[in-house]
Amino acid sequence: MGTGVRSLRTPAPAVAAPLPEAALDVRDVEREAAVTRLFASEAVQLQRLATLLGAGHEAEDLVAEAFCDLHRRWGKLRDPETAPAYLRSVVCNLVRMRLRHLEVVRRHAPGAPPDAGSAESEVVLREDQVEVVRALRGLPERQREALVLRYWMDLREAEVATAMGISAGSVKVHTSRGMAALTRALEGTR
């Protein structure tokens, strides 16, 4: 597993700041420490995931939003070990919402420029990689999500299903259709 579900008992990272609020009770301190550890271990990977899914320059803000959500619902989490999976699913949802919002904005303002925040606009890629990126952008968002989670994060089907909030069967469908469409698009460019 690429990023994997990491243990929450990893040592505290350098970013862990002392808690200034004396009023925080023990449970708050534990929650704060656990979220801080998770931030150190997962935030970069989640930001990359958000970027690959199309969040562009908002990727960092979306990840921060996901951690705020986790902080708020920490007490309702059935097992702290499921927190990375929860964060992944929140990030996927937030990116999906952002893409839909942009779609609505574009529909109402036809002259609006395309989103300049896409990852590939700033990265120097080889010609064949640019073709892959172009083909990926042409896929429906669910298929793109499934491919990124499966082939970049190396998640199992069940984990992809949890992140996307769909069944494992649907993940199979999205992945195979996405790969087929990608293959067709890449064959067309040759």
Partner: peptide, 17 residues
């Protein structure tokens, strides 16, 4: 295609800081 996809996604992700 799978190898190209993995490689491209890794290149894109590596640039995110």
């Amino acid at each position: 295609v799978e190898a190209r996809l993995r490689e491209t996604l890794a290149s894109l992700a590596a640039d995110v800081e």
